[in-house]
Nucleic acid binder design. Structure first.
Length: 752
DNA sequence: ATCCTGCAATTTTTT
DNA sequence: ATTGCAGGAT
């Protein structure tokens, strides 16, 4: 990327950058310099076409990408593009909504609910309706509602197409969710995208304002936009048609989140006269890596079709590695990376290991740590998702927005104030009857005779505590506000009482305060445009950061999911865990189009590599605590044989049939679905050990319960239940889920 | 109300 | 293996 910065634009890139106006669709293959095109286009609009930065609206996939793009534009301009709107769909929408909230019946100080908040609210709504949270898990119900929102369905429409009780219940809850959120002056992630559309529908004059305000609209990663997002930019650009979208249908990997690649096809119909630009020259990878990636993606049928080429001819062959298990895989990769680093091929910061699911990071972390290799994990758990961080932010939220019931419930008894669930249910009923937020109800707790006197007092105390905090915080910056909260609530003492784990949490609290102080310094001065106290703006930002945004720049091997790796690149990349059932993931293969999306994800992974690529799979792997036999991913079959170099960590006792000699090269693997059924290599012992087949009368051993005899077997697969009569009479007979129980054959006990 | 214990469900990807 | 939750004791 950086070395390209100085290169002249190729003709296609230049066309996209200098296109004067009107709709443009840039079909940008992986590594074709689309980020560069976008930044240079923005700079070009500002310098050559004299478009004021504040009249440009640009959407990227992560905040981090937005920040990078902004600073690159600044570099090109020689000055910060003050007023430029650039961010994720969610963050730019939030920015619009902060100004327009009153027209939608919200305060400008609205809270953004994260998925935990939303799920908790769904749970409460289920409970007040006497619906079982066992039968209707709040998580699932919320997922159904969220997907309905992503498809822009109303509660009625969802209810109408309900074919299962769960969907029907979700429809009911969905209908109640909107009013509940409004009451709490809160919006969830989906609302951030939907409310602007409501605004434009109900207040055409506001739409006209924003259409006029933004003369140019640019969208990155267009293939991953959902219906609401596309509609938003369509609205904004409708009048002038100055809409530049950049995307790659082969990299559409968010279908499960409501994204629809077909937007790339309909775009030209929606905007007649669209200029189509194809960026087909790849500046990132070697020819060999591209050959491998092209081989894989070529198996997908529905494609717009691109032919990537590169001037980096040849290159080192792709290593296809087969290992005994996931630890073996991790150790081999760690060893190889250490060697590469020692050879000076790349620093650790130039290497990455990508995987399909976050749970795969463990063994990799261990192997790297064991060798003393520095790494950074771009993980599933964001800093902002830690309990102590959420507690403090909840205080901040409640100061900013007294109607934020989820924040209230989070902090009302933290630190302990003797307010339990039963009391909160009573409080909730009163609040409901009064149509008031919980905090307001707490203030009037003395009027709730149902509550015990000490609870009434405690609740009133919470209300006055927050009043005092609000006064003390005022317009202070977030770091000061957090300090005030800490000092007033005794939260640190509360953590300290938790012991060693609490001390760790105190560290995080310190980090939060420091981070908030740093935030205030870097604050984009234009963000003050619009509305809100510093605390409100800080909260907006905190609600919308993703783990990808947090990745520190401290050097080291990057470990992350393939999803998060989108848009990034490294000289050396390993894609681990390429096994059927894991990548492609078993679940996805059952859905229509699921395998195609997994294949695109795999393609994304491969195309992250500049120089060297490793593809590995483990013949056995622990999944959900159970050892499973694995076969190589079907995607690997599509690799052109001349670009790969097969390696294996096979033990010396490798069976003779089907495989030649001890080490590579391995003969080409059988192709096609039927051939794949054949076991690649037979490992007799492992097969008999690991396939959990239980037979009545057989002896088994449980880690905790000891030995016993199988009395019955029921269910299948994941639900396989085994009834075991344990030797210890105190334990007796138990029903165990075979998948989790970790039963072993009890050979010893046979004679006893 | 809170703490403690033991049981159950859990893992796909993320704004 | 880990985490959250239900139920009982204090």
């Amino acid at each position: 990327m950086t070395e390209q910065q100085s290169l002249p634009l190729n003709p296609a890139q230049r066309e996209a950058v200098e296109h004067p106006g009107g709709p443009v669709l840039v079909l940008a293959g992986a590594g074709s310099g689309k980020t560069r095109v976008l930044t240079m286009r923005i700079a070009h609009l500002i310098t050559t076409q004299h478009v004021a930065p504040q009249r440009i609206f640009a959407v990227t996939f992560t905040n981090k990408a937005a920040g990078e793009m902004r600073s690159r534009v600044a570099q090109l301009l020689g000055a910060d593009p003050r007023g430029l709107w650039i961010g994720t769909f969610h963050s730019v929408s939030a920015r619009i909504l902060r100004r327009e909230a009153p027209l939608l019946g919200f305060g400008p100080n609205f809270t953004i609910y994260d998925s935990d908040d939303s799920e908790a609210l769904v749970k409460r709504l289920l409970e007040t309706r006497q619906l079982s949270t066992k039968v209707y898990p709040p998580r699932t119900v919320h997922a159904v509602i969220s997907s309905a929102k992503n498809r822009m369905l109303t509660p009625e429409e969802l209810g109408a197409q309900a074919d299962a009780p769960l969907i029907k219940v979700a429809g009911e809850i969905y209908a109640a969710l909107g009013p509940a959120l409004k009451q709490a002056n809160a919006m969830d992630f989906d609302d951030l995208l939907l409310h602007p559309l409501t605004l434009f529908r109900e207040h055409p004059e506001r739409l006209a304002y924003w259409q006029d305000r933004f003369q140019h609209v640019l969208v990155d990663e267009f293939q991953d936009t959902n219906a609401a997002q596309y509609l938003l930019v369509k609205h904004l650009a409708k009048r002038h048609g100055n809409l530049c979208v950049v995307g790659d249908d082969d990299q559409a990997i968010y279908g499960w989140r409501g994204a629809d690649v077909r937007h790339m096809l309909t775009f030209q119909n929606d905007f007649p006269g669209t200029k189509l630009v194809r960026l087909e020259q790849n500046y990132r990878s070697t020819q060999i890596i591209l050959d491998a990636a092209n081989g894989i993606i070529a198996e997908n049928a529905a494609r717009l079709g691109k032919t990537l080429f590169t001037e980096k001819k040849g290159g080192e062959r792709v290593v296809l590695l087969s290992t005994a298990d996931e630890r073996d895989e991790a150790e081999w990769l760690a060893n190889e990376f250490a060697r590469r680093a020692a050879d000076g091929d790349a620093g650790y910061e130039g290497m990455a290991i990508l995987y399909r699911t976050n749970s795969q990071s463990r063994p990799l972390e261990e192997a790297l740590r064991f060798r003393g290799i520095p790494y950074r994990l771009i993980g599933a758990i964001s800093f902002y998702e830690r309990r102590e961080v959420k507690d403090l932010l909840a205080y901040l939220r409640l100061i900013a927005n007294p109607a934020d019931d989820e924040a209230f419930l989070r902090v009302v008894n933290v630190p302990r104030r003797g307010i339990g669930d039963a009391s909160l249910t009573v409080l909730g009923r009163s609040a409901g009857a009064w149509q008031k937020p919980l905090l307001e109800a707490a203030r009037r707790a003395s009027a709730i005779t149902e509550l015990r006197p000490n609870v009434r007092e405690a609740l009133a105390g919470v209300a006055s505590l927050l009043d005092r905090l609000r006064d003390a915080v005022g317009q202070a910056d977030p770091a000061t506000a957090l300090e005030t909260i800490l000092a007033t609530t005794g939260y640190e003492q509360y953590l300290a009482d938790e012991g060693s784990e609490g001390l760790e949490r105190i560290e995080n609290v310190r980090e939060l305060v420091a981070g908030a102080a740093a935030w205030a310094e870097v604050q984009d001065p234009d963000a003050a445009e619009g509305t809100g106290s510093p605390v409100e703006r800080y909260l907006t930002q905190a609600a919308l950061v993703t783990p990808a945004d947090e990745a520190r720049d401290a050097g080291g091997v990057t470990l992350t999911t393939t999803h998060m790796a989108k848009g990034l690149e490294w000289p050396i990349v390993a894609l681990a865990g390429l096994e059927d059932g894991l990548f492609p993931l078993g679940r996805s293969t059952e859905q229509p189009g699921g395998v195609e999306e997994e294949r695109r994800l795999c393609y994304v992974g491969l195309t992250r590599a500049r120089e060297r690529l490793y593809l590995s799979w483990a013949r056995t792997r622990y999944r959900n605590g159970r050892l499973e036999l694995a076969e190589p991913s079907r995607f690997l079959d599509a690799l052109p044989s001349q670009v790969v170099e097969e390696r294996s960590t096979t033990p010396t006792w490798r069976p003779q049939r089907g495989m030649s000699g001890a080490m590579p090269p391995r003969p080409p693997r059988p192709r096609g679905a039927a051939a794949r059924r054949l076991p690649d290599v037979a490992f007799p012992e492992e097969v008999s050990q690991d396939a959990p087949r239980y037979v009545k009368g057989e002896r088994v051993r449980h880690r905790k319960f000891g030995g016993g005899i199988v009395r019955g077997v029921s269910g299948e697969g994941r639900d396989l239940r085994v009834s075991v009569d344990f030797d210890d009479p105190d334990i007796g007979t138990k029903q165990l889920l075979a998948a989790y129980a970790g039963l072993e054959r009890d050979w010893e006990g046979e004679g006893a």
